[in-house]
């Protein structure tokens, strides 16, 4: 093998290594899976199933698919699904909390109106 040919082979191997690193080698997203699971737990504790059923279902479906991807060692896909499930779960939790806060504001407004009616009735 001439030095000419040797350089060419080394260059080809180098390019192949860069391509492998860029496209394929992805770490196992164990931590992201745990974070997403806990986001779903929080959301369902806040009443996500009642106040944001669409987001809640989407989060649970994506989490199930993330587990399947993990089993197939498709870590790239598993991480994306888990991240999306986390975003869905956080949105479900927020929707539940804001719905509850709005409800509390309405109840408080009702109470004040009743109190005012009572005063007006008494002062007649």
């Amino acid at each position: 093998m001439s030095s000419h040919q040797w350089y060419r082979a080394a260059g080809a191997i180098g390019i192949a290594a860069v391509v492998m690193a860029g496209c394929a080698s992805v770490p196992k997203p164990t931590e992201q899976i745990a974070v997403s699971n806990s986001a779903i737990t929080n959301a369902s504790r806040a009443g996500g199933a009642e106040f944001a059923p669409v987001e809640m279902k989407s989060a649970q479906d994506k989490m199930a698919r993330a587990h399947q991807a993990m089993a197939k060692e498709d870590y790239e896909d598993a991480r994306r699904l888990a991240e999306e499930a986390q975003a869905d779960a956080r949105l479900a939790e927020k929707k539940a909390e804001s719905a509850k806060a709005r409800k509390a504001a309405v109840v408080m407004g009702d109470d004040i109106r009743v109190l005012r009616d009572e005063i007006n009735r008494k002062s007649k």
């Binding site: 956080r90 949105l91 927020k94 909390e97 804001s98 509390a104 504001a105």
Partner: peptide, 24 residues
């Protein structure tokens, strides 16, 4: 893009929640 879109919605709901809490 999906994650960004959901996070915008989270910001919107957070603002709604805080506004309602202020009202209370």
């Amino acid at each position: 893009a999906y994650v960004a879109k959901q996070e915008v919605a989270i910001a919107r709901e957070t603002a709604d929640q805080k506004a309602a809490e202020l009202a209370v």
